[in-house]
């Protein structure tokens, strides 16, 4: 007799597809937030599968802080065109024109204005009532209790005390006018699951994840890539070529590289399994203060 048994990856895949379809069926105006990172790439692939052979029935939105790695933007534009995505790129125009950036304003101000504010602006502008995000519960301690449907009030704020119970695979999608939800279909995936799935499904990812000789400077204790001419000259002049790769992607001045020679998924996974640092340590914004992610989430950050 045939064995009806699913591997953990296929079970996670099915669970995520269920969530994506459920939101598409029950919300009026959903959007999938696309960060160009590896988790986003997996999430978009799951959405494509959920509605195959049809097209994904909602748009993708990229919140562009205008300080992303150039390779990310190229990757985004290439695949949006190739796959025919309905892609919205939103950025905080006013702040961008007045020159807000991490070098001049620091990570905290930059992140708040160019990421959090831009996100809220984008969601409000298009009137989205549900926004998919690629966050996983294993990323950080405060995410361990995050719901799959995370409720936000009219001001997109998250109240940890006022979240709804989630049982079985039944999700409560009733929201009042003006309220919205963030949906995390990858909640139960771990970093290893993501890599394995990328390998299994041969999902394209931004080449920055693979090791390569790159011009690197030390900035705020992290290895930062000299990605464009906006880096202060005196800093850029200190650049050295180093064999590095990135475990997470974001704004280039705020994302630290790790020295590595891993240029295949297998090598990345192997490196990850013997590594001694957790994924988020390469994100500069997490170091602020204890419970800092929780604070950001309350304010509307993903």
């Amino acid at each position: 007799m045939k064995k009806y048994n699913l591997s953990h990856l296929r079970e996670l895949e099915a669970e995520s597809i269920h969530i994506i379809r459920e939101v598409a069926a029950e919300f009026e105006n959903p959007v999938m937030l696309y960060s160009i990172g590896k988790d986003s790439s997996v999430m978009v692939r799951l959405a494509e599968k959920a509605f195959a052979p049809g097209k994904v029935p909602f748009p993708l939105m990229h919140i562009d802080s205008k300080w992303k790695f150039q390779e990310m933007v190229e990757f985004r534009d290439h695949y949006a065109k190739e796959k025919g995505w309905d892609l919205i790129v939103h950025y905080n125009k006013e702040a961008f024109e007045s020159g807000v950036g991490p070098f001049s304003h620091g990570s905290k101000v930059h992140t708040d204005i160019m990421k959090t504010q831009a996100l809220l602006e984008g969601l409000t502008k298009h009137g989205f009532d549900a926004a998919f995000g690629g966050a996983r519960r294993d990323e950080e301690k405060s995410r361990a209790k995050e719901r799959i449907y995370s409720f936000r009030d009219k001001f997109h704020q998250w109240d940890p005390k006022n979240q709804r119970p989630e049982l079985w695979n039944i999700y409560n999608s009733k929201v009042h006018k003006g309220e919205s939800i963030r949906v995390f279909p990858l909640s139960n995936w771990t970093e290893l699951d993501i890599w394995q799935y990328i390998r299994l499904e041969q999902i394209p990812i931004v080449p920055l994840y693979y090791a390569k000789e790159r011009p690197i400077v030390e900035y705020n204790g992290a290895l930062v890539l000299v990605d464009d001419e906006r880096m202060p000259k005196e800093l850029a002049e200190t650049a050295e070529m180093k064999m590095v790769r990135f475990r997470t992607l974001g704004c280039y001045p705020l994302t630290g590289a790790v020295e590595s020679s891993a240029d295949t998924i297998e090598e990345i996974v192997e490196e990850m399994m013997v590594t001694t640092k957790s994924e988020r340590t390469t994100r500069v914004i997490d170091f602020d203060q204890e419970g800092s992610m929780e604070q950001k989430k309350r304010e509307g950050y993903f």
Binding site: H8, R137, D138, K141, S142, R143, A144, K145, P160, S187, N188, T190, L192, E290, G291, E294
Partner: peptide, 22 residues
């Protein structure tokens, strides 16, 4: 294991937290 600040201060786990290992 205790994720949220308020809970950590109270010394109790008051919600469902999901953990992953393999």
């Amino acid at each position: 294991l205790d994720g949220l600040k308020a809970e950590r201060e109270q010394g109790i786990t008051i919600d469902v937290a999901y953990r992953y290992f393999s």
